[in-house]
Design a protein around this nucleic acid. Sequence first.
RNA 1: UGCCCGGUCGUUCAAUUGGUAGGACAACGGAUUUUGGUUCCGUCUAUCGAGGUUCAAAUCCUCGCCGGGCAGCCA
Length: 570
Amino acid sequence: MTATTDSPVADDTDDGPNDFLRDAINTDMADGRTSNGVVTRFPPEPNAYLHVGHAKAICVNFGIAEQFGGRCNLRFDDTNPVREEQEYVDSMIEDIRWLGFDWGERELYASDYFEQLFDWACELINKGLAYVDDQSADQIRATRGSLTEPGQNSPHRDRAAEESLDLFKRMRAGEFADGEKVLRAKIDMAAPNVNLRDPVMYRILRATHHRTADEWCIYPMYDWAHGQGDSIEGVTHSLCTLEFEDHRPLYDWYIEQLGIFPSRQIEYARGNITYTVTSKRRLLQLVEKGLVSNWDDPRLPTLQGMRRRGVPPEAIRRFWREVGVAKRENNVEVSLLEYYMRDHLNKVAPRFMGVLNPLKVVIENYPEGDVEHLEGVNNPEDPSAGTRQIPFGRELWIERDDFMEDPPKKFFRLAPGREVRLRYAYFITCTQVVKDESGQIVEIRCTYDPATKGGDSPDGRKVKATLHWVAASTALQAQVRLYDRLFTVENPTDVADDEDWLDNLNPDSLQTLETCYLEPALAELKVGEGCQFERLGYFCVDPDSTSQRLVFNRTVALRDAWSKVKKKGG
RNA sequence: UGCCCGGUCGUUCAAUUGGUAGGACAACGGAUUUUGGUUCCGUCUAUCGAGGUUCAAAUCCUCGCCGGGCAGCCA
């Protein structure tokens, strides 16, 4: 395969499973319909921030182009200036790049084709295939018929082509008020497919466009722009979501009447994920009502949010590739995404120790004031990551969950009289539990065995647990934000008429821990960089960090067999 | 009750196009382990229904049933 694509994605270039899109493309190639290569496009409307659902479309379109040695254009579908803004263009470009795709010089816009679209519209008018309608929006709606009844012809449907052409040019010239006239395709008001009932091609809209400013006061509709843009660009396969299936006859009709390059539209099912919402409207509500901090809230499935949370783009790409593409409605389990997050992070994330819910440990037989440095492996999955020195001392922090005064049978961490290993350090044995007047455990007293330095016992005795720890005297203090799924149910928007989908919000989706202790090496980590806190999960540095205090986001927890045992009442 | 699309393990995608229903995740069990992580091994579970064609049907046909989309001068 000759790879001429601009998007070499090194880590996931293997083709993955077959699907009906690739089958169709293979067939078209065999039939000689792709002599200039396979061309796809990702066509967002710049009116919102990209989310993980868009990522599927991006992966499908760029992925297929790459796999077939073709190319994928980025084309902004900017035909409605009242909704679109440059800010969204910029953020989309940033997000797609972050995901790992590249479109070379082909940053394209539907608005690039406004003049051509206008000329083609004139051509259709001349052929008697389009006409200017003077009816109001209400009248057009009223005469469109219903799902079960045909529509009625507009009184202007059969006006002379010359008259329509004149009117259309005057529409462009600004002689009419917004909404006063439209250009309509002349197809069939009795068509069972409502999209074919003389669809509107142009409306008059006095709004400043983010690229063409006030050059135009008429704007093409989606159907009369998208397929034409595809054709102009030589897009061989225009892959879109299922709701456009009913539009395909119109897509094909315009191309056929114009006799231009026949792009082929194929529809596939959008990707949904359990416990998350991706509709623009709903994401907007979450942000505007302050239910999340902003568009980049790490709990949101926006690409900005996922990036801030530390989700590796590789995981998103891998996820959508493995999920595949089909035509049936789907709701993929979020655990699959989490699996690929862990799978990637496990290979690349440097390990550190951090204590989230600290409990003080004093090693009674360790010399007061002494600090020694012990060697830790940075990444057991990647020897080239090397080692680091970790300071150890008489007073340490361990995780509160790692000690139980009266442990159940299957708990094999620290308990009175029990010996455990401190990772990379020593075996310690709990000798005493110190409580305050309310009975709360405030400190654990232990002894250590100097012969077990590094964590090995020369006499071969075993311990059942290895704990992470941080030396108190050199610890970094940090805030850590733990995220849980934003909703408590798999389908948050699946609610009865008298229910509010927002009632499904998880009240505990964010837990902020103000006093966490980290090993000092973590001070070197920069904003956005990720790591593993051993035994806990993957974390990354949040932009809220200051030189005074680090802030970490938990990207995803490690799989936790103990929590399952605990739940079962172990 | 118009038109279009879809229905395969809990989830999702496959099945060389009519020839032993398979993978991944999840779940469950076990081995290894200086992360109750990783890795490894194993187990469990599915063709919406009824007819028909055929030596043979997830696949083709018919009729049902269920789910989704469509009546913007949105995309």
